[in-house]
């Protein structure tokens, strides 16, 4: 199914009101809203990070959002996965998110995929303008990195557990830039999944919102982004630090 994105020169009076507070920003203006209406983001993961990302991208006037997740909503999700309510327990995440986003922005084109992302489904990234990794484990993150290198797509990575998080923008659409594997190749115990770890709900909101923010900045080309940088977030001590990342000449993924 090929759905057509909105025409960028066709903003209605309703749009001008809906996006008024963004249009008033010098870095966005009407032109930014028109550009966003033509853009397609692929969001992988609809958990603690994916929920705020999906919500804010929908209300920003994005043209098309592809959502990928094969999970069912559970009781333990509700504390931080803010698009779900107790009546959604047992339902598919992609179906529920689609319904919620449609109530927020009926013009948003949504493509949903009730699957676990793998290299077999990597062609879903083909016509994306950028990809957001909001998953919860190293092996899927590694596959997403590989797929974005294959299809030359920018990757907005966010991760959160306990009271700490990280965000980075990997320009896998460009050559000679660091990728996720340049950063995480050295880590041995990569499967410390969040399944058995706690996570503070506000942290996932903060990290997810920074991912949504970096996506919009990258698409509209304003400000300094976290390109080739890693943002470290420690909410326990409300400490933020940014470090630079270089391409690893020995990286087996991007060389």
């Amino acid at each position: 199914m090929k759905e057509k994105l909105r025409n960028k020169i066709n903003l209605s009076d309703k749009d001008l009101l809906a996006y008024n507070k963004h249009i008033l920003l010098e870095d966005i203006q009407t032109e930014g809203i028109e550009i966003l209406a033509t853009k397609h983001i692929v969001l992988i993961g609809l958990g603690g990070l994916g929920c705020p990302i999906a919500q804010y991208l929908a209300t920003s006037g994005l043209g098309k959002l592809s959502i990928i997740d094969n999970d069912i909503i559970e009781d333990t999700n509700l504390q931080r996965q803010i698009l779900y309510t107790s009546s959604d327990i047992g339902k598919n995440k992609v179906d529920t998110v689609e319904k919620k986003l449609k109530t927020l922005n009926s013009d948003l084109v949504i493509q949903k995929h009730n699957i676990k992302f793998s290299m077999h489904s990597s062609n879903l990234l083909k016509d994306a303008d950028l990809v957001i990794d909001a998953t919860d484990n190293f092996s899927t993150r590694s596959i997403i990195n590989k797929a974005t290198i294959k299809y030359k797509k920018p990757l907005i990575m966010g991760a959160a557990e306990k009271l700490e998080g990280q965000v980075s923008v990997f320009r896998n659409d460009l050559i000679n830039r660091p990728c996720y594997n340049c950063l995480y190749a050295d880590v041995d115990d990569k499967e410390n999944s969040c399944m058995d770890q706690g996570v503070l709900s506000m942290l996932t909101g903060i990290i997810g919102n920074i991912q949504a923010l970096e996506s919009i900045k990258l698409l509209l080309n304003f400000g300094d982004t976290l390109e080739s940088k890693l943002l470290l977030v420690d909410v326990k001590n409300i400490n933020f630090r940014t470090i630079r990342i270089s391409k690893d000449p020995k990286c087996t993924m991007c060389n």
């Binding site: 993961g45 919860d136 996932t204």
Partner: peptide, 10 residues
């Protein structure tokens, strides 16, 4: 020198 944890959850 700064030491920080890997984070992969979400």
């Amino acid at each position: 020198v700064a030491y920080f944890p890997p984070v992969t959850g979400g």
